[in-house]
Design a protein around this nucleic acid. Structure first.
Length: 424
RNA sequence: GGAGAAAUGGCAGAGUGGUCGAUUGCGGCAGUCUUGAAAACUGUUGAGGGUCACACCUCCGGGGGUUCGAAUCCCUCUUUCUCCGCCA
């Protein structure tokens, strides 16, 4: 969430940013927030004065008791009763106003970076880079779900039986290929300096709030009501929350983490042809990279992350492109996002396989993730994350683009991880 | 799952109703000494709100209560430790 002080002091910038996102009722929301903040501070000031007086009187009573002047003490005691009533009332008001303010702040998305293109939908995203050859497939080339069936490497019906739609079962070389991809991605990430971590796949409410999944995306996560835990929609949540409520030393920057986790998404309301096969799942595997950066370095870091993911796709020899997301298509918490899409030749469409974002201080503010700057003051850090990479659509692209009449030709980089060169 | 104990600043650990946001030690930072470092000595060192800056306010696991006054008493939740049970 944005800092109130920032909104207060940069009203125009905030409004401009929200306009880029096509955020509705921006002016109303922002002014409501500023007003709530003013009211909150006014109540706080009033309350503080009463508490100060009340503290003083209590001390006086203490002194009077010590010197045996109990009668005087009794008189002062009566005075405090009124103060107490007033302070109780103000405390309630303050709490209410703070909650109101908090709720407003939760509703305001991050301000897009200068270079984010204006726009309302995926149509307006900016294609900033593209490479890799789109293969000419042989006659009879198939989409991945048919290939999966033909070679018996992914069983959607079986997953359906065990859990439901969107929970595939990977079999034989399909399962092995999954494991190979995970190991390959993790190795690439650790080689680039990211420390590998294994994290819980369920998180508590505080973690959900920390990275911004709660309160607004509640319905997209699986929730265990008995213990009030959420199945993670991405490793971003547990990994970034390692640094919730942490004050770093400036020398600790940068922090680089990578984690493999399954990801669980309810994806309520998504049905139809474009979610077929591996295109959209309730459970999928992903290897994530997370960085905690000094504000002055976060955009250089974003660049590094983009180049890192590029390197992997080059090595896999998959045709891909990079989009700079427009204001309307960007995630709630992001200031700048690059999406990677692999071309699915048999489906003749691009599939998103990675999303790399700089959140600036938006998450850090919720997380209370700070560092001590050179002046010794605490300042919010910047958080970034990206997929490196999400498995199902990489697999879809791989199966479709690497198909030959003789079978699926595994990219060279993966062969040492798979232990086979062909799926046939 | 059952019984008992505990939760205090980066860490260790005092404090059991009144100038306590908190003794002390370690660690961190700055300085003195030193060619430099170490050691020693001196000083400094939690977070948030508020203010031009002070003042002032809040926070001793979370929430609630008693009291003029709570780190300290009561209730409750969470977590940790010890013992027992179960167990990959």
């Amino acid at each position: 969430m944005l800092q109130v002080a920032f909104i207060r002091e940069n009203r125009e910038t905030v409004l401009k940013g929200l306009a880029k996102r096509n955020f509705k009722n921006a002016e109303e929301m922002v002014d409501k927030t500023i007003l709530a903040d003013e009211e909150r501070r006014a109540i706080q000031t009033e309350l503080d004065a009463i508490l100060a007086e009340s503290n003083k009187l209590s001390k006086d009573i203490g002194d009077l008791f010590k010197s045996g002047e109990t009668q005087k003490a009794a008189i002062i005691k009566q005075k405090t009763v009124q103060l107490k009533d007033k302070s109780k009332e103000l405390t309630d008001n303050l709490q209410q106003k703070s909650t109101d303010l908090q709720e407003l702040l939760y509703l305001i998305p991050n301000i897009p970076n200068e270079i984010v293109p204006a726009g309302t939908s995926a149509e307006d995203n900016l294609n900033v880079f593209q490479e890799g050859e789109i293969p000419n497939l042989h006659k009879g080339a198939m989409p991945h779900w048919e290939l999966a069936k033909k070679y018996d490497i992914i069983d959607f019906e079986l997953g359906n039986k065990i859990a439901g739609a969107g929970f595939p079962v990977y079999k034989g070389k399909g399962a092995k290929l999954q494991r190979a991809l995970i190991n390959y991605f993790l190795d690439k990430n650790t080689a680039a300096g990211y420390e590998e971590v294994q994290v819980p796949h369920l998180v508590n409410e505080a973690s959900g709030f920390g990275t911004g999944q709660l309160p607004d995306k509640e319905g997209q996560m699986y929730h265990d009501a008995t213990d009030n835990l959420y199945l993670i929609p991405t490793a971003e949540v547990p990994v970034t929350n390692i640094y919730r409520d942490v004050i770093l030393k400036e020398s600790e920057f940068p922090i680089l983490k990578t984690a493999y986790t399954p990801c669980f998404r309810r994806e309520a309301g998504s049905y139809g042809a474009h979610v077929r096969g591996l295109n959209r799942l309730h459970q999928f595997d992903k290897v994530e990279i997370v960085r905690i950066e000094h504000p002055s370095n976060s955009y250089a870091a974003l660049e590094l992350m983009v180049n890192h993911v590029k390197g992997i796709l080059q090595e896999l020899k998959l045709p891909y492109r990079i989009l700079r997301l427009c204001g309307g298509d960007m995630g709630f918490t992001s200031a700048l996002t690059y999406d990677f899409e692999v071309f699915s030749t048999a489906q003749d469409r691009w599939l998103e396989i990675s999303s790399v974002s700089n959140f600036e201080t938006f998450q850090a503010n919720r997380l209370k993730l700070r560092f001590k700057n050179k002046e010794g003051k605490t300042e919010l850090a910047h958080t970034l994350n990206g997929s490196s990479l999400a498995l199902p659509r990489v697999l879809a692209g791989l199966l479709e683009n690497c198909q030959t009449p003789e079978g699926i030709k595994i990219p060279d980089a993966l062969v040492p991880y798979c232990g086979f060169e062909f799926i046939n």
